[in-house]
Amino acid sequence: MNAQFKKGVLELCVLAQLDKGDKYGYELTEAISQKMTIATGTLYLILKRLKDEGYFETYLVESQGGPARKYYRISEAGRTHYHELKKEWEQFITTVDELLK
């Protein structure tokens, strides 16, 4: 898979997970890495970039017994971006499906 394509797919997965609800880093990376084999470290690079684009906000929540956890929350702009990407993805797989038939 080419890197650009992979990046787009992972970006979409990250957005989709956060669209379902706020998550902290480990929780989010686990949710994705349970379904696909990836270096979860790359997800933090994606998170950082999407956060700098204004698609996520972060906030801290005290956790029992351990240090506070940084939670990610999707912003309005993030949601719009997610829906745009999702639509592109759906069009893409429809096209590929048609070609495979």
């Binding site: 880093g25 480990y26 929780e27 990376t29 933090y44 998170l47 351990g66 956890r69 940084k70």
Partner: peptide
């Protein structure tokens, strides 16, 4: 982020 990930892990 990575450091936190280690803690959460």
């Amino acid at each position: 982020d990575f450091e936190e990930h280690f803690e959460q892990g």
